[in-house]
Amino acid sequence: MKYRTVAELVALARQHGKTIGEVVLEQEVQAGGRTREEVFSNMEKSLLVMEQAVEKGMNEVVLSRSGLTGGDARRLREYAQRGRSLCQGVVLDAVNYALATSEVNASMGLIVATPTAGSSGVLPGSILAAGRHLGSGREQMVYALFNAGGIGFVIANNATISGAAGGCQAEIGAAAAMAASAVAELAGGSAEQCAHAAAIALKNLLGLVCDPVAGLVEVPCVKRNSMGAAVSIVAADMALAGITSVIPCDEVIEAMYKIGTMLPSCLRETSLAGLATTPTGQELNQRINKKDQE
């Protein structure tokens, strides 16, 4: 790949008069030895899986194996349909779709890890909601996924996308940055605006710890996915308005990584602190994980 940083990605896009999504696709073709059509259709397949997961989560009550999560996406949809919600529109839809995807994930349904399974709700939630409201074509949506992939690629290589290594900021934080950039591109924003959107979204989630109850990708992960989607849409809107991130995106990514290394391991996916060790968290852990060892 010819880019290692978000700044390089933006420069490539500017230099060739292309979107970040187009640059990322071309770089993947050059690096991977596959044709443009193959690479594009691979990504289109991911879009289809995302749509199916949202569809399923919105219309069915999908319960997880532990019984901790499921049914909230449909609950939110029914509430939204009554037309009296506070953030009706793209934001609420993004939240709803993200919730749906994360519930499907928790129920062992089919999803796309973006960048991880635990954070798989954010990106589809945001781009499907924004795409529908903007009337984006299918091709544009696929390019938006490449855009998100490019931002995630930089974060994964220069920082981390693992909750065990960097806390939730590395998963939901990375996903929100990816989604913010993708949505900014869908809405016609420039490459620079995409980078600012990503930076603004990630900054808001810096320091977020990974403290899953009973070690499962459910509490608080499912709801954090929907909140990450909301953050990404708001961040995109701010960037599209011309608001810039004072700290450049690559520096925010580096800060995220450093914060991650400073987090004690009890707050990095070990379930030894935070929400996992609240009285309710411990009780749930006893109920779910100990029953099979009797």
Partner: peptide, 24 residues
């Protein structure tokens, strides 16, 4: 570079809930 492809980031397509504990 630990990740070489964009499909390491957008992907894999998998059944949930965990890429390490389920897909792996």
């Amino acid at each position: 570079m630990r990740y070489n492809s964009i499909f390491d980031i957008i992907g894999p397509i998998m059944v949930g809930p965990s890429s390490s504990h389920t897909a792996g």
